[in-house]
Nucleic acid binder design. Sequence first.
DNA 1: ACACCACGGTTCAAATTTGAACCGCTGTGA
DNA 2: TCACAGCGGTTCAAATTTGAACCGTGGTGT
Lengths: 148, 148
Amino acid sequence: MRAWLAFMPAATLVGRELDRQLKEDTGLSHLQYEILIHLDEARQGAMRMTELAERLVNSKSGLTYQIGQMEKAGLVTRRQCEWSKSGVLAEITPEGRAMLERAAPGHVDKVREILIDVLTPEERRAIAEGLGRVRDRIIERNDGEACW
Amino acid sequence: MRAWLAFMPAATLVGRELDRQLKEDTGLSHLQYEILIHLDEARQGAMRMTELAERLVNSKSGLTYQIGQMEKAGLVTRRQCEWSKSGVLAEITPEGRAMLERAAPGHVDKVREILIDVLTPEERRAIAEGLGRVRDRIIERNDGEACW
DNA sequence: ACACCACGGTTCAAATTTGAACCGCTGTGA
DNA sequence: TCACAGCGGTTCAAATTTGAACCGTGGTGT
């Protein structure tokens, strides 16, 4: 029960804090940053919309919106998937990569500062294990059903 | 780092799942449920807006909005604070308490099901301790500054 | 009593999120 | 080849969130 009382507030606070730092330093929202990270990691720097949405734990329509914003800002492009006429690839642009390079160091520092460094090694392990399991359980449970 | 990769997604998923269950079973959002809980626990069943906002880790304007909605729904009332002409108390109504009684069992079950029961006792302890510390650190760090 | 600044809440417009409806593809079976 | 169910994305309106500006009070110092 105490775990519960710590978990959600901590998540909210950490999220808010990171959002703030990113927005202040780079103008990016946390979600936009995550989008860039995922695209940057993908081979070709591109990914299907739906897959991206799933990895980000975000709704499809929400992603459409954000990609729209980021396209305006020149950070990503939309491109048709080669082998399927429906199907859209979001691709990171050079500007997007540049932005990421500018944003990443500060962001990573912040994560360390407010989360990682506050935890003992074995707390980190417990969180990685335990919450990882929590996450996977929910994902897998929802997999059969309709998505958001 | 793995802790980080588990933490935020787990929080998002758990939040979404609870929101869904509550909305489906009772029509309440998670935030509204939390509001009722906090008011119900307060003596007199009432609390100052700002204090409530702080406890909920929510913005003041957001709270104003939600209390407005819940007032329309008859779950809470607004009342002037006795000893201060500015200052508003949000108070839970009998309907609000009834709603809470209807909502609580299912909600608590869900929390156990998707979070508590998935964790080992010592993971729970580590999360309570560690994330509790994370939470308190951020709160206290922000205390001096302007709030949201 | 007066000037002022901080506090408690609300308001307002803009940004974002949500969920359902929709539209053009895909591929599967008759 | 012809439905037709289901997927991938987008659109749309409605709900919510955000952050800054604002308004009346409270307390402080003079």
